[in-house]
């Protein structure tokens, strides 16, 4: 709960790094997906990863908690080394139980929610604390109820995932990840699988998290959200960080030619809509 209770405090964004990736390379068979990515995220920072499909943003996110195991590079989370392998294969061997422990300092939210279908919303949220952290059931229950309440799901705690809408499921998923009291939250296109009218409620929950000072790394196509919430936008291209900086600069004054095209496409679609919006404002719609 500590992460939530700092609600109105202004996050200190020059703090210590929570996450440090060094020269991350990732191969799927012969295909090179990531080609040496450096990324450091400080406490309370909200980083949004953007890029065309196939640029490696989801792969990078999945490397952070070793759902994808990099071919080389190093990962440090909260000053503990999760992964370390040099290009020549040397490096620190982290024992599996240690990996599991350090990994649980990250919380992940998936595009397809991936809630456990055989458990209620409440059980989904309690699962990590009870099974992994071995917290007493009653304590975990109280904490889970509080988190679900924060996500606006107080009336749905006893429901199974299939009884919930996509937006509700995704908010349960956020609560489930938060229940492990992570140092950093990872979001993998959390609104891409949602019906348009449900996107807002999930984004609102994420904005609340960001305001509470949670460190977040988010892969998303919602550039408007990136513009509003991100402290830093990172543009990936061909498995490399092509450009990064504050959202206003990246999204409004891109320099990298590919980023220009990428952002341009979004501006184009906005331009296409403009006449309709203006017409409606002028009251000329039928």
């Amino acid at each position: 709960m500590s992460t939530i209770q700092t609600n109105n405090a202004v996050p200190d964004k020059s703090g210590k790094p929570v996450l440090r990736l060094d020269r991350i390379c990732l191969k799927f068979g012969d295909k090179r997906v990531l080609n040496g990515i450096d990324l450091s995220v400080v406490e309370g920072e909200v980083v949004v990863l953007i890029g065309a499909s196939g640029s490696g943003k989801t792969s990078l996110l999945r490397c952070i908690n070793l759902l994808n195991v990099p071919s080389s590079g190093s990962i440090v989370i909260d000053e503990e080394t999760l992964f370390d392998r040099q290009v020549d294969g040397k490096g620190a061997q982290i024992p599996v139980p240690e990996v599991n422990r350090i990994r649980s300092k990250t919380g992940m939210v998936f595009q397809q929610f991936n809630l456990f279908p055989h458990m209620t919303a409440l059980e989904n949220v309690m699962e990590g604390p009870v099974i992994v952290k071995r917290e007493p059931k009653e304590q975990a229950r109280q904490k889970a109820l509080q988190l679900l309440d924060l996500m606006g799901l107080a009336q749905h705690v006893e429901k199974y995932p299939r009884q919930l809408s996509g937006g509700q499921q995704q908010r349960v998923a956020i609560a489930r990840a938060m229940a492990m009291q992570p140092k950093v939250m990872l979001f993998d296109e959390p609104t891409s699988a949602l019906d348009p009218e449900l996107v807002g409620e999930v984004m609102k929950a994420m904005v609340e998290l960001a305001k509470s000072g949670m460190t977040m790394v988010i892969v998303t196509h919602e550039l408007g959200f990136a513009f509003e919430v991100a402290d830093r936008v990172v543009f990936l291209d061909q498995g490399l960080v092509a450009e990064q900086g504050p959202p206003a600069r990246i999204l409004l004054h891109p320099e990298h030619p590919r980023l220009k095209t990428f952002v341009g496409r979004f501006h184009e679609s906005a331009d296409l809509l403009r006449p309709f919006l203006e017409a409606r404002e002028a009251g000329k719609t039928c």
């Binding site: 908690n65 759902l67 599996v96 139980p97 599991n100 422990r101 990994r103 649980s104 990250t106 919380g107 992940m108 998936f110 397809q112 991936n114 809630l115 456990f116 699962e127 990590g128 099974i131 992994v132 998923a173 489930r176 990840a177 492990m180």
Partner: peptide, 15 residues
């Protein structure tokens, strides 16, 4: 995705 989710909350293979 179920394995991903379980792994992400820090579960061991047995769990």
């Amino acid at each position: 995705g179920q394995i991903d989710a379980a792994t992400a909350i820090g579960m061991s293979y047995g769990q």
